[in-house]
Amino acid sequence: MTDDTAATTDTAVDTRPTKIMYVAEATAHGGRDGFVSSLDGQLALQVAMPPALGGDGNGTNPEQLFAAGYSSCFHNALVLVGRRAGFDLTGSTVAAKVGIGPNKQKGYGLAVALSVSLPILDQGIAAKLVDAAHEVCPYSNATRGNIDVTILLG
């Protein structure tokens, strides 16, 4: 699951897993106007182009799925680092916005904005926990340096 031919530099941090503990499997039929399902049957969704991209919007789309995955993964990382630091994160939430648009290479790119709410914590402590979660979260590690990720603490 890794590309051993990828060039790395001495200053790059290697965030690849040393051991695969779980593998999710899903299949798409019909691309953005079709159906996606997971091998275990837990996911079975109609996929449709959103109206903003010329579709009818009668289904979910890859950007919504990415937003759901990133927000839940980041929130789990946040709870983990909070617990390790001795903080109760009851009532905390993470919302994700995933944008798509053309890039300079005549393809498409993504941008993410995460909105984190830690209502019972001091802003300074909350900011430190968010920074720590951003280092732990697998989605953050996978996207770092590849897409713009903005984290808003409110």
Rank of each mutant, 00 (worst) to 15 (best):
D122W: 04
T93Q: 09
K19V: 10
E25W: 08
D3H: 09
R144D: 01
A24P: 07
T9S: 11
F74R: 02
S140D: 06
N141E: 08
T5K: 11
H29W: 06
I120T: 11
D4L: 13
D14T: 03
N58L: 14
F66Q: 00
Q64L: 09
T18L: 13
Q64I: 02
A26Q: 03
G34T: 09
A28C: 15
G34N: 08
T143Y: 10
N141W: 07
A26W: 03
E63Q: 04
D3C: 06
M1W: 07
E135A: 15
N76P: 00
G99P: 00
V136W: 03
D88Y: 00
F35S: 12
A12Q: 15
A126K: 08
D88L: 00
L118R: 05
V81Q: 02
Q123R: 15
T93G: 01
C137S: 04
G54W: 03
G99T: 01
Y22E: 03
N76Q: 09
L89F: 01
T2V: 13
F74Q: 04
E25N: 14
D14L: 05
E25L: 12
L89H: 00
Y22G: 00
D4K: 12
L118G: 06
P62M: 01
L118N: 01
V130F: 11
T27H: 14
K97A: 12
P62Q: 03
D3L: 13
A12F: 09
T150K: 15
D10T: 13
M49P: 04
G34M: 10
P138V: 09
P62K: 00
K104N: 11
T18N: 15
A133Y: 05
G54H: 00
S140V: 03
A96I: 02
G99D: 04
L43M: 14
N76S: 12
G69H: 05
V130Y: 09
D88S: 04
Y108P: 05
P102Y: 04
V47M: 14
F66A: 02
R84Y: 00
L118Y: 09
K97Y: 06
P51Y: 02
P50G: 07
F74C: 02
D14K: 04
P51W: 05
A12V: 11
A111E: 14
L129M: 02
A26G: 12
T8Q: 12
H29N: 14
H29L: 11
Y70W: 08
S37W: 08
T8C: 08
Q64V: 02
G30F: 04
V98Y: 04
R84D: 13
G59V: 03
N61Y: 06
T15K: 05
D3N: 15
N103S: 08
G31S: 06
Q46G: 08
L45T: 07
G91M: 01
L121C: 03
G101F: 06
V23C: 05
V13Y: 10
V47E: 06
A113C: 13
K19D: 13
V94W: 05
V130T: 11
